[in-house]
């Protein structure tokens, strides 16, 4: 009896040590996130001003602002989404609504997974070989947008597929029973219900695209270009590449550190805002759909 008691005690002690440790580790990871965020926010906050986001870089990128990089990134986000969003949503509709389970679907799924697993630098190589050299777009917004678009395509497809799957089959059956065609059912019944979730996916992929560096290194990004792009065949600066340049290979790394903190903060803000927005949308529409 006594022995058993001791055993139970040891057991309980081991358990509480292990659980305490696991709890500590979990909170440490979250703490790490806050340390990274706080570090960049504190150091970058003093740099950010109206001039910082509306002026050209000056004095070898140690002064002035990052206006062209912001505009460049906006153009890239817009360009890549113009490509990836329609293609991705249509592809997901086909996969979820049209094609029957079988080897064809399996192949498409597997290929989409494979594309998602391709490292971003390989997209850079591919974009350079195909868009910049073969199709002779040169280093341009077009080449960069298409490369980034292909990169996020699997993300768009996956989130859209999930949103479509979440739509209850009774809606489809009801629509089909009323004599609507497949496309009518999809476009007038399924898509409107799934739309909020699809939108959420879109916003999340915007966050992803705006932070990618490796794919744009050789397809669009300019080291220093104090003017705005005027056509899709122009080079452009971009936020992530700008951060890389001024923190590793700028003309004066120490002097441009402040600018680097500011740029990092802007990038983080874009990602955070897109994440929060996506979550808020999900919650807002989630309630609305349920009420209906």
């Amino acid at each position: 009896m006594k022995k058993e008691n001791r055993l139970a005690k040891v057991k309980r002690r081991n358990q509480s040590i292990a659980f305490g440790l696991f709890q500590l580790i979990s909170y440490s990871i979250v703490a790490l996130l806050f340390i990274i965020l706080a570090f960049i926010v504190i150091k970058g906050f003093s740099v950010i001003s109206w001039e910082f986001i509306t002026e050209m870089p000056k004095e070898g990128m140690t002064q002035g602002g990052i206006y062209p990089a912001i505009i460049g990134t906006l153009c890239l986000v817009l360009g890549s989404m113009l490509f990836a969003f329609p293609v991705g949503v249509l592809a997901a509709i086909y996969m979820n609504e049209y094609v029957k389970d079988g080897w064809g679907k399996k192949i498409i799924k597997q290929m989409t997974n494979n594309l998602a697993g391709v490292p971003s630098i390989v997209f850079g190589l591919f974009g350079m070989a195909l868009f910049v050299n073969k199709l002779e777009f040169g280093d341009s917004l077009l080449a960069g947008s298409l490369t980034l678009g292909l990169l996020v395509l699997p993300v768009v497809i996956r989130t859209t597929e999930e949103s479509l799957k979440a739509v209850d089959d009774t809606f489809r059956h009801a629509s089909l029973a009323l004599g609507a065609s497949k496309w009518q059912t999809t476009s007038r019944v399924v898509l409107p219900i799934a739309f909020p979730n699809i939108l959420t996916g879109l916003i999340l992929s915007i966050g992803r695209v705006s932070g990618e560096t490796a794919p744009i290194l050789f397809t669009v990004a300019a080291y220093f270009l104090p003017k705005l792009p005027t056509s899709i065949f122009d080079q452009a600066m971009a936020l992530p590449y700008h951060l890389y340049v001024i923190s590793t290979s700028g003309t004066n790394i120490e002097a441009s550190r402040a600018m680097a903190y500011g740029t990092a903060l802007i990038l983080i803000i874009i990602v955070l805002v897109s994440n929060l927005l996506a979550n808020a949308l999900r919650k807002y529409f989630g309630k609305k759909v349920k009420m209906n």
Partner: peptide, 18 residues
Amino acid sequence: LIELLAGIPSVVYGFFGL
């Protein structure tokens, strides 16, 4: 919050590391 870690761009991680 942990998933948010995945959203931070790699170049920002590189900068933080640096």
